[in-house]
C-alpha cells in the first residue's frame, strides 16, 4: 500500500525539474523507513497466524527463486545463442504437429513452473508459434523427470499414479495447444511480451545473454512475489483439516482438490507429497490435484499476467483449469 502510494506521489512530484524524485530516492526512503520502524513491524507480526503466513511467504519466494533464475538463464541463452531459424528448423512446420513435440520437449526442463514462464515467452519472441510455446509452458513443470521421481517416491504404493500424472499433464498441455491453434488470438497477448529486446549488433552475445536474463528476472520477480503473497495467505487462512471429512464423495473431491491446487500454489516437485497426505480421498481427486497444480495456480497466474499481460492470463488460466480437470478425470478413469 505505502509502496504504490509513494510511487504515485513520486510521479506527481517529478513534475518540477528542481525537485526530481526518482525510484532510486523512493527505494532509499522505503529502506530507511523500514529500518526505523523495524521493531514496530516485528511486534505487529507477532500473531501466530501472521507469523505462519510470513514464514510461508518467505519459504515460497526462497524456494522458487532458484528455479526462476534457472528459467531466465535458459531464456537468456535462447535469446543470445539460438537463432530463430534454428528453432524453426527444429520444430515441425505445421503448428498442430509441433504441439505434441513441444509437450514431449517439456521433459527436458528440470524445474518447476516458475522456470517455464520466461522460457515460453522467449520462445514466442524467437518466432515460435504461441500454441507451441504455451504447450511447452504447461508440459514442462509436470512431466520432467524430477517431478515424476518425486511422485513415484510419494506414491510408492500406487506406481500407476506416476503414469497417470504424466499422461494427464501431457494431455492437458497438448489440448490447450490445439485449442490455441483453433481459437487463440494474438491480440490477447500483450505487445510488450513479444517485443524483442535490443538488437545483437555491436554488443557481444554474452552481453545480450546477461541483459536478457536480467531483464526477465526483474520482470518476473515481482509477479513471483505477488503469487507467493497470495499462496501464503490462502495456505494460512483456508483451513484444510475439514478436507479429510469429504471421504468417498468423488465429484465433490475432484472439484475441491482442483481449487485447492490453484490456491496452494505448491511447487510441482513437492505437490505429490501433499497429495499423498489426503489419504481419506480416493486416487482420482488426488490425480486432479497433481494435474491442475503445475498447469494453473495463483503463483503461475501472477507470472503469466506479468509475462503475457492480463487479458491473456484471465482467458488462459480458466480454460487451462477446466481442460486440466477434464484430462485428469479421463486419464484417471482409464488408468487408475
Amino acid at each position: 500500500m505505502t509502496i504504490t502510494g509513494e510511487i504515485r506521489s513520486s510521479k506527481r512530484r517529478s513534475g518540477p525539474p528542481r525537485l526530481k524524485i526518482t525510484s532510486l530516492e523512493v527505494l532509499c526512503g522505503i529502506l530507511v523507513l523500514a529500518l526505523l520502524l523495524q521493531s514496530r513491524l516485528v511486534d505487529l507480526l507477532d500473531v501466530p497466524k501472521l507469523r505462519t503466513a510470513s514464514t510461508v511467504f518467505v519459504a515460497i519466494c526462497v524456494q522458487a527463486m532458484p528455479f526462476l533464475v534457472l528459467g531466465v538463464l535458459i531464456s537468456g541463452a535462447i535469446a543470445a545463442f539460438v537463432p530463430a531459424s534454428a528453432l524453426r528448423r527444429l520444430l515441425p512446420s505445421k503448428t498442430a504437429l509441433a504441439v505434441p513435440v513441444a509437450g514431449v520437449a517439456g521433459v527436458a526442463l528440470p524445474g518447476c513452473e516458475c522456470a517455464s514462464v520466461p522460457v515460453a515467452r522467449r520462445l514466442m519472441q524467437q518466432g515460435v508459434a504461441p500454441a507451441v510455446a504455451l504447450t511447452f509452458l504447461l508440459a514442462a513443470p509436470a512431466v520432467n523427470p524430477i517431478v515424476l521421481v518425486a511422485t513415484a517416491v510419494a506414491f510408492n504404493d500406487t506406481p500407476m499414479m506416476v503414469v497417470a500424472r504424466f499422461v494427464g499433464s501431457l494431455l492437458t498441455a497438448m489440448v490447450m495447444g490445439w485449442l490455441w491453434v483453433r481459437f487463440g488470438k494474438m491480440e490477447w497477448i500483450a505487445e510488450r511480451a513479444l517485443a524483442r529486446l535490443g538488437d545483437h549488433d555491436g554488443t557481444s552475445r554474452w552481453a545480450v545473454f546477461a541483459e536478457s536474463a536480467r531483464h526477465d528476472l526483474v520482470d518476473a520477480g515481482g509477479f513471483l512475489v505477488l503469487g507467493g503473497l497470495f499462496a501464503a495467505t490462502f495456505k494460512t487462512f483456508v483451513p484444510v483439516a475439514w478436507m479429510q471429512t469429504l471421504g468417498g464423495q468423488v465429484v465433490l473431491g475432484v472439484i475441491v482438490m482442483a481449487f485447492l491446487a490453484v490456491i496452494l500454489a505448491l511447487c510441482s516437485e513437492a505437490d505429490a507429497f501433499v497429495a499423498v497426505a489426503f489419504s481419506a480421498l480416493p486416487l482420482l481427486p488426488r490425480l486432479v490435484f497433481l494435474v491442475v497444480g503445475p498447469a494453473v495456480d495463483v503463483k503461475l497466474i501472477a507470472l503469466q499476467a506479468g509475462a503475457f499481460g492480463k487479458s491473456f492470463a484471465f482467458r488462459f488460466a480458466p480454460a487451462t483449469f477446466v481442460v486440466a480437470i477434464l484430462c485428469a478425470v479421463v486419464t484417471g478413469v482409464v488408468l487408475l
Binding site: 510511487i7 513491524l41 510470513s54 511467504f57 515481482g222 503473497l229
Partner: peptide, 17 residues
Amino acid sequence: SRSTWLMLLPVLAVFLI
C-alpha cells in the same frame, strides 16, 4: 511494471523480520 517493487518484500522480510 510497478510489480518489480514487490521484490522488496522478501528482502525486508528476511533482513528485518
